[in-house]
Computed example of a mutant assay.
Amino acid sequence: MMKDLWMGTRLLFIDISAALCILQKRISGHKLTKREMKKLKRVLNDIISVVPVAILMLIPVSAIGHAAILAAIKKYLPSLIPSPYSSERLDVIKQLKRTKKMDIQSSSNLKVSSSVLAE
């Protein structure tokens, strides 16, 4: 749970920095693409929705209470959960990490195999 929270927070800051670059591009006079506008709107929506969720999570209740609050939000107000904390985006990041780890392992196995063959 804490790992997902940390990963989501990192994603949020990455999204914010990308949105700032898009805003800087717009301010300098460039026209934005539909994709850039969509990303900008999503990030702004995420920033706005972080505040109420953070307030709810700061309310002093038990861990079970926080889990119940999150479950209720997911069920009744799913758009309130910022996209970096959504299970879909977190699953993609986890899959990328697993793939990276597998690539590193396979490349190290290749190095070991080639060194054995060279001997």
Rank of each mutant, 00 (worst) to 15 (best):
M1T: 05
M1H: 08
M2I: 11
M2L: 13
K3L: 13
K3C: 06
D4E: 08
D4L: 01
D4P: 11
D4I: 04
D4C: 03
L5C: 11
W6P: 08
G8N: 11
R10K: 12
R10N: 15
L11Y: 00
L12A: 05
F13R: 15
I14E: 13
D15C: 00
D15H: 12
S17I: 05
A18L: 14
A19M: 13
A19Y: 10
L20T: 09
L20S: 10
C21L: 13
C21W: 14
C21E: 13
C21R: 04
I22P: 11
Q24V: 15
Q24W: 04
Q24G: 15
Q24Y: 12
R26E: 13
I27P: 05
I27M: 01
S28E: 04
S28F: 06
G29C: 10
H30C: 14
H30S: 07
K31M: 10
L32H: 01
L32W: 07
L32V: 07
T33A: 13
K34A: 08
K34M: 05
K34G: 11
R35M: 14
E36G: 04
E36F: 02
K38E: 04
K38H: 06
K39A: 02
L40M: 02
K41Y: 06
R42K: 09
R42V: 03
V43Q: 00
L44M: 11
N45E: 08
D46L: 01
I47K: 07
I48M: 14
S49D: 09
V50K: 00
A54L: 02
I55S: 07
M57R: 11
L58S: 06
L58N: 08
P60Y: 02
P60W: 01
P60K: 00
S62V: 03
S62D: 00
A63K: 02
A63T: 06
A63E: 03
I64S: 03
I64D: 06
A67M: 04
L70T: 03
A71P: 09
A71D: 06
A71I: 08
A72T: 02
K75N: 12
Y76M: 04
L77V: 13
L80R: 01
P82Y: 00
S86E: 13
S87L: 09
E88D: 03
E88S: 10
E88G: 08
E88F: 13
R89P: 10
R89K: 12
R89H: 12
L90E: 04
D91F: 14
D91Y: 03
I93D: 07
I93C: 07
K94N: 10
K94H: 11
K97V: 08
K97Q: 12
R98G: 09
R98T: 03
R98M: 05
R98E: 03
R98N: 14
T99F: 13
K101I: 11
D103P: 10
D103G: 09
I104W: 11
I104T: 12
Q105G: 06
S106T: 12
S106G: 11
S107D: 07
S107L: 09
S108Y: 12
N109G: 09
N109P: 05
L110A: 04
S113H: 15
S113T: 14
S114G: 04
S114F: 09
S115H: 14
V116F: 08
E119T: 14
E119I: 14
